[in-house]
């Protein structure tokens, strides 16, 4: 984007701070509804970063798909399973958090080291800028055609799978013979099937 370097720097700093604080809020806040809304903020700031990286089409796709679809889906799921439950205390939870924090810190240090010691071939070729959308279209219909078609099949499969997994009602009659299906096996008066059967 053709914006002044100071403006670019300010935009980057603001977006980064929003991104990091939002991500920490998503992970750490006790109320999960706040986490979901902060996740929307994280997605929006990632879209802003894409705009700074000369990718207006992907930024628009990010806003449409992530903020418009995934985040709304997560909010609906929260509303559907929003039950206040007192989580049973687990022994060694603090130790587990410390250990996983150490592992994540080590991973972070490793990634930082890779980022700063690898000799990136900079400066690369000049960015295409606003022509990026045209280039993406050419890629999608020439050398990435097979993944593009597979993605459509994947979306159809996941749509059908999500419907099958999440629906509650069952057919009351058998499709072939036409007689009544024993629904008690499948779902009886909304009683959970596996609640008391687990070994522990």
């Amino acid at each position: 984007m053709t914006i002044a370097s100071t403006t670019q720097l300010i935009c980057f700093v603001v977006l980064s701070v929003t991104l990091v604080l939002g991500a920490l809020g998503v992970v750490l806040l006790p109320n999960i509804v706040y986490s979901a809304f902060l996740l929307g903020g994280v997605f929006l700031s990632v879209a802003g970063l894409y705009l700074m990286l000369n990718a207006s089409f992907v930024a628009a796709a990010q806003v449409l798909v992530y903020v418009g679809a995934v985040n709304v889906l997560i909010l609906f799921a929260i509303m559907l399973v929003n039950k206040k439950e007192n989580l049973a205390a687990i022994p060694g939870l603090g130790l587990r958090r410390l250990l996983s924090g150490a592992v994540c810190g080590g991973l972070f240090l490793l990634l930082i080291r890779v980022a700063f010691t690898t000799p990136w071939p900079l400066p690369g070729p000049a960015a295409v800028g606003e022509e990026a959308t045209i280039r993406i279209g050419e890629h999608l219909f020439s050398d990435y055609l097979l993944p593009f078609e597979l993605a459509s099949v994947l979306l159809l499969m996941s749509m059908i799978g999500a419907i099958v997994l999440a629906r509650r009602d069952v057919l009351s009659t058998d499709v072939i013979t036409g007689e009544l299906v024993d629904q008690g096996l499948i779902e009886k008066e909304r009683t959970p099937l596996l609640l008391e059967k687990s070994p522990r």
């Binding site: 559907l80 993944p147 993605a151």
Partner: peptide
């Protein structure tokens, strides 16, 4: 492509969760 797969993953994951 990653955005596409992530959308599919979110849909199926939330259905499994329900």
């Amino acid at each position: 492509f990653v955005i596409t797969v992530a959308a599919a993953e979110a849909a199926v994951g939330l259905a499994i969760l329900l």
